[in-house]
Design a protein around this nucleic acid. Structure first.
Length: 816
RNA sequence: GCCGGGAUGGCGAAAUGGCAGACGCGGAGCACUCAAAAUGCUUUGUCGAAAGACGUGUGGGUUCAAGUCCCACUCUCGGCACCA
C-alpha cells in the first residue's frame, strides 16, 4: 500500500464509488422475485427552482438514514424521488429571466438530479416522476374528472384574495400579514368564478382519523390539522325577525346562554345585512352604506389588529329571542365573519369577550346568566335563565336544545373552519383543467380518451399575470368543438393548484411510467400506504391535508384499501445561518455545493445527522462539518489498520472490544428507529474510540475483534457516510455494496456483566461508588457501602433511619 | 386571545424517577516534528489550594431520590386568530 492510499482522500473516494453504485443499483426496489419484506420510505419531492440547497441536504440526509437503515435490516425499501415541477416558483423565475418555464424547469431538474446523485441519495432511479410531464398531469386531469363525476369538483362564484398590483388571485398562504407575498401590496378581495374541491364533505373523517396517527405523526402537526379543520359543536337557533317572513338562523356553541342574549349582530359585508338595512328608514340605510364603505376599504392588516375598537351600526330592525320573546336590536359589524357559520350571531355580552366589547362601545345592555363567581371557565350554574336555572353548561345546552327543538327553533349542529379547496389558478405553468365550456351544453368534461389536455407551447403567450389565465391567449388551443354537440366551444383556461399534483404523487411512484392507469392498484396493495414520510413542517397543514383528502376519496372510489396515506411522519427542522433563515438578501446564504467541495459529501451528511434532534433547527454557524470530516478520517483509518483476513473467527477476539461492538449493535437500531440520529452517530464515535484504543493497545491490529468492530462500523457508518463506509468495506476485503450488508443482531451473551459499579448516596447525595459483583445481595451491598470512608463521613453523628437499596446498582441511606 | 413546543457548560447537545453534562465543537496541556500542519494522548460545569460546596429558567409540591412527575409562574419559538 502506498502512502497515498493510506491517506483519507475525500475527492478520490467519491469519484471511485459513484460509477460502481450506478452499476450495482443497490436500491432497485423492483427486482423480480425479491422476497424481502417491503417498506416504503418517502421524502417530500422538491420544487426544481434552482440547485439543491442546505435545506434539501438536511431533508435528504435524514430520509436516507431511514431508508438505508431498513435496507440493512433486510427490507426491500422503495425510496423514490421526483419533482414538483409545476407552479409559481418555477413560473415566476421563468418570467423574471424571460425564459420558457419548461426549458428552465427541466434544466433545473437535471441539475438537481446530478446533485442528488453526487449526494449519494439512496433513491431508486427507476422510479422517477415530474409533475409537469404530460404523462403525469394527464392523471391529474383523470382524477379531476373522477372527482367531477362524484360532485367533488365544482365551480362557484365567490370572493377570493386578489393582488391589485400583480393582477392575480392569491392563495391564502400567499397572503402574508395582509400583504401579497411577492410584491408587498395590500391584498384585496375580488369575486370570481373558480373551481373548488369539496374537501368539506370529508371534514369529519379528516378530523377523526387524526386519532389513528397519534404517536406516529408529530403532535404539533396533528394539532395544526385539528386547528385548521376547526370543528365546533353547538346549535343553530332561529330568530324571528320583525317585518320579515324568513327567520334568521345563527350558529352558537353556547345555546345555554340564550337568556343572556341582548342583541344580534350580522356580518356587515353579508347579503343579509344589506337586505335588513334596505328594509329600514333612509337614515339607517345611509348610515349602513357609509359603514359598509369603511369596512370594504379596511384591509386585512387593520382587521388583524388585536386591540381594535369595535365598530358597527344599528340596522333599525329587531329579532325575537325564541326562549323569552324579547326584542333584540340587530346591528351590523365587521367583527362577525360573513363566511363562517351563518354570518349572524346572537350576542351575549356577559359571557363573550367580543360581544362584551361591542356592548360597551355602543352602551348595550348586559345580562349575566352564568354564575361565574367560583369558576372563571364559564361553567358555573345558570341564573336568570328560566328553565335552565341551576343547571351547568353541559346539561343546560342539552336542555335548551330539547326545549326549542319541538318548535323547530333550534337543532344541535356542528360547524367547521375548513373551507372548500379553491384549485383554479390563472397561471400558465400548471395542469389544464379538462373542461370545455359550450354555450348549449354548459360544462362538458373532456372525454377520457382525449386526455391529456396538453399545455400549449409558451411561445407567443404573455405569461405575466393580468387577472386572466395566459392560456386564454392560445387561440388555437382554446377554440375546440364541443365533445357533446360539436358546436364551437372553449376550453377552460385555468390551471390546477400544484397541491393537486402533490396530493397523490406517492401513488404514482408505484407505476411511474404507466400510460394506462394513474397507479397500479395491485402495487398499491403491496407497497402503500407510505411507511415513513419525511419532509418539512412547512407542509404540515395544506399538503398533508390535501393528500389525506385524496386518499380518502380514492378509498371511497375503491382504488385503494387504506384511508391514511402516511403511516409515520418525520418533520425535520430548518437549516439556519447565524440565527435566521438563509437568504441572499440577508447575506447569510451558505451554498450547499461550496460545503460539499470544502468538506465532502459524507461530512455534510454526517453533520446534518449529528447536529441535534432532527426536528430541531440547525444553525450552520454552530456546527462543525470539519469536525465531522475529522471523525470520518479517523474512522476510515481504523479500517485501513486491520491486518486480519476476512472471515476470521471473531469469538477469539479481544473481549473488551467485542463487548463494545455488541453494545453498539444493541443500542444502534432502536436509536435510528426512534429518530435519534444524533445519538446514533455518538454511538458510532464511541465505537471508533474503542476500536482506536484496541488497535493501538494490547489487542493490536490483527485481533479478530478489531475486524469485527471495523466491519460493524463500516455498516453503521454507511447510513450517514456512504462513500467512506464503502471505501472502508473494500479495504476490509469485501465486494462493493456495504449498503446491502445486513447489520447483525447483538450477541446478548457478550453483554452479560459479571460486575458493575454500585452507587452509594447519603440523603440522596452521591458519596461513593465501587465495583461489585452483579449477584451481590442487598444485605452485602449495604454492608459494603457502610464500610466506605466517604459514606461514614457523610453519615457522621447522624442516625440511619432508612436504607433503600436496589442490588447491585444502588444504595441510599436516609440519615437524621 | 387560543393551541402546541422549548429553556441543561463558552457552543451543538445526552440522560427507562437512581452517578447531570454521553458524544462532539471550542479551549488548555503533552508527545511526534528543526518547525508547522496532520495525528495520537491527557484535561476541560462553576467556586475552591484541597476537603468540599453549588449546579438543569423561577417559586412551590410529591418522593428515600426530580432535568425527568404534579401545581403556579417567567421568558422564548412555532401555528391559528374577532371562527361566535
Amino acid at each position: 500500500m502506498t502512502e497515498q492510499e493510506r491517506e483519507y482522500d475525500v475527492a478520490s473516494i467519491q469519484e471511485r464509488w459513484l460509477p460502481v453504485w450506478d452499476e450495482l443499483k443497490p436500491f432497485d426496489s423492483a427486482k423480480p422475485g425479491d422476497s424481502r419484506p417491503k417498506k416504503y420510505v418517502l421524502d417530500m419531492f422538491p420544487y426544481p427552482s434552482g440547485d439543491l440547497h442546505m435545506g434539501h441536504a438536511e431533508a435528504y440526509a435524514l430520509g436516507d438514514v431511514i431508508a438505508r437503515y431498513w435496507v440493512q435490516r433486510g427490507y426491500n425499501v422503495m425510496h423514490p424521488i421526483g419533482w414538483d415541477s409545476f407552479g409559481l416558483p418555477a413560473e415566476n423565475a421563468a418570467i423574471k429571466r424571460g425564459l420558457d418555464p419548461k426549458g428552465w424547469t427541466y434544466d433545473n431538474i437535471a441539475q438537481q438530479k446530478a446533485s442528488m446523485r453526487r449526494y449519494a441519495c439512496s433513491f431508486d432511479w427507476d422510479r422517477v416522476l415530474a409533475t409537469s410531464d404530460p404523462g403525469y398531469y394527464r392523471w391529474n386531469q383523470w382524477l379531476f374528472l373522477e372527482f367531477y363525476k362524484r360532485g367533488l369538483a365544482y365551480r362557484k362564484n365567490s370572493p377570493v384574495n386578489w393582488c391589485p398590483s400583480c393582477q392575480t388571485v392569491l392563495a391564502n398562504e400567499q397572503v402574508v400579514q395582509g400583504l401579497c407575498e411577492r410584491c408587498d401590496s395590500v391584498a384585496t378581495k375580488k369575486t370570481l368564478t373558480q373551481w373548488y374541491f369539496k374537501v368539506t364533505e370529508y371534514a369529519d373523517r379528516l378530523l377523526d382519523d387524526l386519532d389513528r396517527l397519534e404517536g406516529h405523526w408529530p403532535s404539533k402537526v396533528l394539532a395544526m390539522q385539528r386547528n385548521w379543520i376547526g370543528r365546533s359543536f353547538g346549535a343553530e337557533v332561529s330568530f324571528e325577525i320583525e317585518g320579515r317572513t324568513e327567520p334568521v338562523t345563527v350558529f352558537t356553541t353556547r345555546p345555554d346562554t340564550l337568556f343572556g342574549a341582548t342583541f344580534m349582530v350580522v356580518a356587515a359585508d353579508s347579503d343579509l345585512a344589506a337586505e335588513l338595512a334596505s328594509g329600514s328608514e333612509p337614515s339607517v340605510r345611509m348610515a349602513f352604506q357609509a359603514y359598509l364603505e369603511t369596512v370594504k376599504q379596511s384591509n386585512d392588516i387593520e382587521r388583524l389588529a388585536t386591540d381594535r375598537e369595535k365598530t358597527g351600526v344599528f340596522l333599525g330592525r329587531y329579532a325575537i329571542n325564541p326562549v323569552n320573546g324579547e326584542r333584540l336590536p340587530i346591528w351590523a359589524s365587521d367583527y362577525v365573519l360573513a363566511d363562517y357559520g351563518t354570518g349572524a350571531i346572537m350576542a351575549v355580552p356577559a359571557h363573550d369577550q367580543r360581544d362584551g366589547e361591542f356592548a360597551k362601545a355602543f352602551d348595550l345592555p348586559v345580562r349575566v346568566v352564568v354564575d361565574n363567581e367560583e369558576d372563571i371557565a364559564g361553567d358555573g350554574p345558570h341564573i336568570n335563565s328560566g328553565p335552565l336555572d341551576g343547571l351547568y353548561k353541559k346539561e343546560a345546552i342539552e336542555k335548551v336544545i330539547e326545549l326549542l327543538e319541538a318548535s323547530g327553533k333550534a337543532k344541535a349542529t356542528k360547524n367547521f373552519r375548513l373551507r372548500d379547496w379553491l384549485i383554479s389558478r390563472q397561471r400558465y405553468w400548471g395542469t389544464p383543467i379538462p373542461i370545455i365550456h359550450c354555450e348549449d351544453c354548459g360544462e362538458v368534461p373532456v372525454p377520457e380518451q382525449n386526455l391529456p389536455v396538453e399545455l400549449p407551447s409558451a411561445e407567443g403567450l404573455d405569461l405575466k399575470p393580468k387577472g386572466t389565465s395566459p392560456l386564454g391567449g392560445a387561440k388555437d388551443w382554446v377554440e375546440v368543438s364541443c365533445p357533446n354537440c360539436s358546436k364551437p366551444a372553449l376550453r377552460d383556461t385555468d390551471t390546477m393548484d400544484t397541491f393537486v399534483d402533490s396530493s397523490w404523487y406517492f401513488l404514482r411512484y408505484l407505476s411511474p411510467n404507466s400510460d394506462s392507469v394513474a397507479f397500479d392498484v395491485q402495487a398499491a396493495k403491496e407497497w402503500a400506504p407510505v411507511d415513513q414520510y419525511v419532509g418539512g413542517v412547512t407542509h404540515a397543514i395544506l399538503h398533508l391535508l390535501y393528500a389525506r383528502f385524496f386518499t380518502k376519496v380514492l378509498h371511497d372510489i375503491g382504488l385503494i384499501d387504506f384511508e391514511e396515506p402516511f403511516t409515520r411522519l418525520l418533520n425535520q427542522g430548518m437549516v439556519l445561518m447565524n440565527g435566521s433563515a438563509m437568504s441572499k438578501s440577508r447575506g447569510n446564504l451558505v451554498r450547499l455545493s461550496d460545503q460539499l467541495d470544502e468538506h465532502g459529501v459524507d461530512a455534510v451528511r454526517l453533520t446534518m445527522a449529528f447536529a441535534g434532534p432532527p426536528e430541531d433547527d440547525i444553525d450552520w454557524a454552530d456546527v462543525s462539518p470539519s469536525g465531522s470530516a475529522k471523525f470520518l478520517a479517523r474512522a476510515w483509518r481504523t479500517a485501513n489498520d486491520v491486518t486480519s483476513e476476512p472471515g476470521v473467527d471473531f469469538t477469539k477476539g479481544d473481549a473488551a472490544l467485542r463487548k463494545a461492538t455488541h453494545t453498539f449493535l444493541r443500542d444502534f437500531g432502536p436509536l435510528i428507529e426512534g429518530f435519534k440520529f444524533n445519538v446514533g452517530v455518538a454511538k458510532l464515535m464511541e465505537l471508533v474510540n474503542a476500536l482506536r484504543k484496541a488497535i493501538d493497545g494490547s489487542a493490536g491490529p490483527a485481533d479478530p475483534a478489531v475486524r469485527e468492530a471495523a466491519e460493524v462500523l463500516a455498516r453503521g457508518l454507511s447510513l450517514f457516510a456512504p462513500y467512506t463506509a464503502e471505501d472502508m468495506w473494500a479495504r476490509l476485503g469485501h465486494q462493493p455494496g456495504v449498503a446491502l450488508a445486513v447489520l447483525p443482531d447483538a450477541d446478548e451473551s457478550l453483554l452479560v456483566e459479571s460486575s458493575t459499579i454500585a452507587v452509594v448516596q447519603v440523603n440522596g447525595k452521591l458519596r461513593d461508588k465501587f465495583e461489585v459483583s452483579v449477584d451481590i445481595s442487598k444485605e452485602a451491598l449495604i454492608a459494603k457501602a457502610l464500610e466506605s470512608e466517604q459514606v461514614q463521613r457523610a453519615i457522621g453523628d447522624g442516625q440511619v433511619v432508612q436504607q433503600i437499596a436496589s442490588a447491585p446498582k444502588f444504595v441510599n441511606f436516609v440519615v437524621k
